[in-house]
Structures are given as C-alpha cells and as structure tokens.
Computed example of a mutant assay.
Amino acid sequence: MSTYRHSDDNGTTEESLMADITRYPFTRHLRGSATAHVQHVRNGRTVHAGTGASFWFRPLSAVLSEIPVDDRELPLLFHARTADFQDVTVQMTLTSRFTDPALAAARVDFSIDPETGRWRGTPLDQVAGLLTESAQQHALDLLTVTDLTTTLTRGVTPVREAVARGLAADARLAETGIAVIDVRVVAIRPEPELERALQTPTREQVQQQADRATYERRANAVERERSISENELANQIELARREEELVGQRGVNARREAEQAAAAAEVASEAQARRDERAAAVRAQTQRVLGAAAAEAKEAELAAYAGVAPEVLVAQAVQQLAANLPRIESLVLTPDLLAPVLAKLGAR
C-alpha cells in the first residue's frame, strides 16, 4: 500500500513514477506494473487498456494514461471549531482506491509523458484535495453542532462514522471512480492550554483517590499496629496472670511441703521419743537387774568373809591391792614405814 506523494533524495515532493518506457527509434515500448491501469488512446480510440499491460506505441500519435489501482493512504490533519467555539485538531487517515480506472482517467488528467513515463500534471494531488475537502466537510458538520466536552467524551467513533457515511454517499467521488475503503480517526485534541485545563479535574480526582488510598493505607497500618500492641499487651497481662498463679501455686506447694515436712518430723520425733523411752526402760531394767545381781554377789561375798580371820582378810586385801597396783620398778622401804606394821604384828 503506497501513499499519494513521496519525497525524492533532494527533499522535494513529487508524484510517483510508475510507467517503464523503453525508447527505440521511431517507436517506444511501455511496460506497466501490477498495481497500475494503463490506457493507450490513438486518434480518439482506445487501443490498449488494462492493469499490468505492455505494448508498443508511437510517441507522436499516442495518448497514454496511467491510473494506480492499489490502496492508497491519505493522512489528514485539520482544525475544527466545536459548538462552544473551541478549536480542536483532528488527525485521521483515509484509505481509498480507484475502482473504475477508465472513469477516473476521463475525470482526472492521468496522462503521462511518452518519453519519460511521468505524469504531465499532478492527478494524485487533485484526488487528495478532493478527499481532504470532502472528509473535512463531513467532520466539520458534526463537530460544529457538538460541544467540546461531548466531543472529547464520545471519542473518535462519531467523527469516523460521520466521515465514512459522508464519503460513501459522495456523488462526486463515485463519478470519479474513487471508493473510500477505510476511515481511521487517530485523535481529536483541543489546544494544549485547554487540554491541560480539562485534564486538571481528572488529575485532581485521581490525586484525591491516591491520597485517599494513602490515608486508608496509613489508617490500616495504624489499626494493625494498634491491634498488634493490644495483642502484645493482652499477652503480657495473660503472662503476668499466669505468673501470679504460678507464684501462688509455688507458695501453696512450699507451704504444703513444709507442713508435710513438719508432720514427718513430728512423726519422726514421736517415734524417736518412743524408741528412746523404750531404750531407757530397757537400760533401767538392765541396771536394776545388774544392781540386784551385784548386790546378791556382794552379799554372798560378804557372807563368805564373815567367818574368816581378819589377818586373812588383810592379806587378801594386800594381795588384791598388789595385783591392782601399777608396775613398780623399785621400792624403797624406810624404817618409818615398817615400824608401825611390825609393831602391830608383834602385838598380835
């Protein structure tokens, strides 16, 4: 799909060159393309006509026309005024095609130079001007009765549909053999200052929604922090209560252990007292028995000594005394000690 105009290497704009003409002495050969309808008229009579045709012709008697039959795009950018006197810029693109090349060649000058193959005039500019004026007229008919807010709110669809209906019903386009295949409205924009002014309420609303979302997020964060703090405080209170119960239970347990220990000690003391009492009774009984036995033995011993002479008793006492005396390495007897003893023995 090509456009109506193109730029060459020098930056200038010119019509597209489609015919391929080969020059020979006194004659020429034209070779068409698959997207161009070529028409050869000689002496008012059509000699050759067709898409992609190739033929020989004489340059002095030939009238050649070349009509493109491919889809062509025409970008448009024009200004319009709405019902409330606001300027808007409409950007659209038209796609058209020559459906009847012979009729188009009869209404528009598509003749080409038999030497160079270039168009003698600017037929595509004429067609582009026709399409532009017609599309603008239909778009203006709609925009001039619609205010700016409605135009921007409804979007590009009403304008596209209005232009498409108007071009489809345009008798001049039909008489020229032109069919508009597609209408695309890219944008409808007001002036930059007005556009910014119109965007301000929406931006403010969006900013308010963003601020509201921020505040709600902060409020939710504060609420979550408060819930967390309350949970922590409740946990601390519960831990303190359980600790208090634990301390109380430990006191009860300690008191119970002390009572049990005291009861056990009391029982042990009573048992020990009973044991000591029984042991004391046993010892007293033993002492009584031993004392009685010793008294009886002593009595028997004294009874045995009752009929014995005193000298014998003294001798026996001395013997027992000597047996119980400690070991004596040497004994010194003085006259003072022996004199009383000898005196008593002599008296007896």
Rank of each mutant, 00 (worst) to 15 (best):
P123V: 05
Y4N: 03
T95F: 07
T150Y: 07
L131E: 03
G52R: 14
R118M: 05
T286H: 15
E14R: 12
V185A: 07
R274L: 05
A268Q: 10
L140H: 15
A139D: 00
P326Y: 09
Q319I: 04
D336A: 12
Q236W: 11
L140Q: 12
P75D: 14
R283G: 06
V127S: 03
I67F: 01
A19M: 09
T82G: 13
A339T: 06
E277S: 10
P310I: 10
E329Q: 13
G11V: 02
P192V: 11
V314T: 11
A317Q: 11
V289M: 12
A169S: 09
Q205T: 03
P190T: 10
R256F: 03
E301D: 07
A273Y: 14
R242G: 00
D147Y: 10
D109R: 08
V308I: 14
R118I: 01
G307I: 02
S227K: 15
E245D: 12
T89N: 12
Y215F: 00
E257D: 08
I237M: 15
V185M: 09
V222T: 10
T122I: 04
A281K: 15
E238C: 02
V318N: 15
R288H: 10
E223V: 00
D276E: 15
G291W: 13
D87W: 11
W119C: 03
V163L: 09
P123N: 14
S54Q: 14
T132G: 09
E329S: 11
V185T: 05
I181H: 14
L130K: 02
G251L: 12
H79P: 02
S65E: 04
A171G: 05
N324H: 09
P340R: 05
A315L: 15
E238M: 11
D336L: 08
S330Y: 08
Q319N: 13
R278K: 15
G32T: 01
V318E: 13
I188H: 01
E270C: 05
V312E: 15
A284H: 14
A254V: 04
F55D: 05
T12C: 06
D113Y: 09
F78I: 07
Q316P: 00
A210Y: 06
Q319S: 13
R256W: 04
D9A: 13
R23M: 04
A293V: 12
L60Y: 08
S96Q: 12
V159Q: 05
P326F: 06
A221Q: 14
R107C: 04
I188Y: 01
D276A: 15
S111T: 10
Q39F: 00
T149E: 10
D211A: 08
D20E: 10
D109N: 12
G177T: 02
A169R: 08
A169D: 11
F55A: 04
L338S: 08
L74K: 01
L333G: 02
I181D: 11
L313D: 01
F98N: 07
R45T: 01
T95K: 15
P201E: 08
L94F: 05
E175Q: 14
G166W: 13
Q316I: 07
R217P: 00
D100N: 07
P101Y: 06
R212P: 00
L76H: 03
P114V: 03
A106L: 03
I112C: 07
T176A: 13
E225L: 13
G117A: 04
A197T: 03
D170K: 02
V206A: 14
S269H: 11
L140F: 09
A104I: 01
P340W: 04
V312D: 15
D182I: 03
